[in-house]
Design a protein around this nucleic acid. Structure first.
Lengths: 229, 229
DNA sequence: TAATATTCTATTTTATACAATCTTGTCAAA
DNA sequence: TTTGACAAGATTGTATAAAATAGAATATTA
């Protein structure tokens, strides 16, 4: 009988990571060791090791003698993340464009349609996941597994930021159209066009994100004023 | 004020990382918890947490119930690393080219000359460090700190691989010339040329590395014998 | 003899107790 | 208001024991 995970620290890592990405632990929130280990039904030791890993990954921050907390991603950092994302994905799609198998193309087309569905249904959680998968699958075809791993971490952080703060409402359908263009470039095995279309797609997305985040930046102070009044 | 609880796990992390990058712990070697914690003069706990972090960073591998060992980087992975490196650095230098201050340019020029010195002196350790600093400083000017952190991790792994296995002998002086070309492109604030020259530089370096590693692949036993002797 | 179970041992992993240290907030004195 | 002592609570590090596991050694079976 094969046991799935016999590594509690590993399990704790996956679980806490999930809690963070699903906002059951919110950015800025202190992560209480006792509470968390009770929640997961294990002792401190594996939880602590999990948190160290997450700190290395920069999903949580650690201040010596003060403990762990869920990392807050600033607008500036989100922009940096997008910059790196563009560089990585552009490289990935260029390599992938000439290696696309019919199977891969089919899979990516399928993901596009599912993405479209989630846009129509307005289910954010599903939509962000499918968007991520669309981009990851393309990167995977490049054959560069180092790239894939890094991109996953980048995307998770970007999603963590924008899923909390929100995005322009009309972005979804446009993104779907852009996905179709990317797919089309991939079908015609045209690396240069694929790169160009992808770059356009990502720069649009970044623009939307940044302007939206900056516009929101004014309101939290207002709410403080409101509270005083 | 005596600070005793100032994060031993962090210190252990830095120390073990150093041991790995300096080959005092060799790729493939099992990392004994007892021995290592004695060596660092601390108990298991901080060492274990450090190793978890290093596993997350993929400098050590972890097999449940078997423990930790220094990661071995294959030729394929080294190629992947180089691919990502090119993508990241190309993006970085493009952003940096228009933001170069005279100070930054001076610093980078100085690093180039020190690199040249280390090539002439044939001190590998110094040479690899200065090469890394040259590339990192340029990336820093981009202002994208996410990029810098990722690049540092990539470069450390590449260095870890090629410092152990070796590089073509004549690569040093050529690399120096290429560094000068990069510097020149930066001085003239020409992003496109900077990117082009950098890409050429890195693809030359990758070529050299890959062909050298593949040629060594035939006689790995020999090299081990030599190193022991 | 070969294949398969079954101990056994060493190591890793987890849990827990405890001490040392650090942070923070409180309260009184300046 | 500021300062500093102090207590309460949390974090960190150590030590140690219990549980789980892998790998080797041994025994059993066919």
């Amino acid at each position: 009988m094969p046991k799935k995970h016999s590594d509690l620290a590993d399990k704790a890592y996956e679980q806490i990571r999930g809690l963070i990405l699903r906002y059951e632990l919110r950015p800025g929130q202190h992560i209480d060791l006792i509470r968390t280990s009770q929640r997961l039904g294990v002792s401190f030791t594996p939880v602590r090791e999990a948190l160290r890993r997450l700190a290395q990954e920069e999903l949580v921050s650690h201040i010596p003698n003060k403990g762990f907390s869920v990392r807050e991603i600033s607008v500036e950092e989100a922009e940096c993340l997008y910059g790196v994302r563009e560089a990585l994905e552009a490289y990935g799609i260029e390599a992938a464009a000439t290696r696309m198998s019919p199977d891969s193309l089919g899979e990516i087309a399928r993901l596009s349609e599912m993405y479209h569905q989630s846009v129509l249904e307005k289910i954010d959680r599903k939509r962000f996941l499918l968007d991520k998968l669309f981009h990851i699958r393309i990167a995977e075809v490049s054959g560069n597994f180092v790239l894939v791993r890094m991109l996953e971490q980048i995307l998770d952080k970007i999603i963590m930021k924008i899923r909390l703060e929100g995005m322009p409402r009309d972005r979804g359908p446009i993104a779907y159209q852009e996905h179709l263009e990317i797919l089309d470039a991939l079908k015609s095995q045209d690396p240069r066009r694929a790169v160009a279309v992808l770059r356009k797609h990502l720069s649009n997305a970044r623009e939307g994100m940044v302007s939206f985040l900056r516009s929101r930046l004014i309101s939290p102070e207002l709410s403080v004023e409101e509270e005083i009044a």
